[in-house]
């Protein structure tokens, strides 16, 4: 455990420039990239890894990616809740249960249902492959083997599912704005 930890921070030091470059490209914000890199460093020096890591540099890249995703999410949420609370008004302490309107929640539920309906229209095989990959976490390679098709064919099926949702989000946005 101890060895892994010090090993990981050495790999971090040796590859700092690469990771920084990745985060800068990932966020397009050098100051943020520097902050995120610092966060990753703190995580590896205070956390514990159990078990050996096959590719420590890839592991560090992955930590950087997840840190960037988190930062992006917080940003998105911040925007979302600012909108939410400015719409809710400032008198929510007066009327406890009404300021977040049920209609909003219903709309989101409805969107989910409609997105589900869109995915339902996918061919059986595409749907099966998608579920295996995204929900059961089976790799593209394994799916290719069990379905007896090429890996690029598997990818095509998966791209289709992602396209359906991307399109749904896009139409939805256009409709609501």
């Amino acid at each position: 455990m101890q060895q892994d930890k010090s090993g990981l921070s050495k790999v971090f030091d040796d590859n700092r420039a690469l990771l920084q470059r990745f985060l800068a490209a990932r966020t397009r914000d050098t100051a943020l990239a520097e902050d995120l890199l610092q966060d990753v460093w703190i995580k590896i020096t205070t956390g514990t890894q159990s078990g050996p890591i096959d590719n420590p540099l890839a592991y560090l890249y992955k930590m950087c990616e997840y840190t960037a995703r988190d930062a992006h999410r917080s940003e998105v949420r911040k925007l979302a809740r600012e909108t939410l609370w400015s719409e809710a008004g400032s008198d929510f302490s007066a009327e406890r249960s009404d300021h977040l309107t049920p209609e909003k929640i219903t709309i989101e539920r409805d969107q989910l249902k409609r997105a589900l309906t869109e995915l339902e229209k996918l061919p059986d095989k595409t749907r099966e492959i998608f579920i295996d990959f995204r929900i059961n976490q089976i790799t593209q390679k394994e799916i290719a083997r069990s379905q007896n098709i090429s890996i690029s064919a598997v990818e095509k099926h998966l791209q289709r599912a992602y396209r359906v949702i991307a399109k749904f989000r896009k139409n939805n946005d256009a409709g609501m704005d």
């Binding site: 990745f22 096959d54 540099l57 890839a58 992955k62 990616e65 990959f133 976490q137």
Partner: peptide, 24 residues
């Protein structure tokens, strides 16, 4: 999407992360 699929697959090696950086 392909980059997301690769990350979801078995562990993406550092060489691919470098390629991902270049793509970004």
């Amino acid at each position: 999407v392909r980059w997301i699929l690769r990350q979801r697959d078995a562990d993406m090696p550092d060489s691919e992360w470098a390629a991902f950086t270049e793509w970004l």
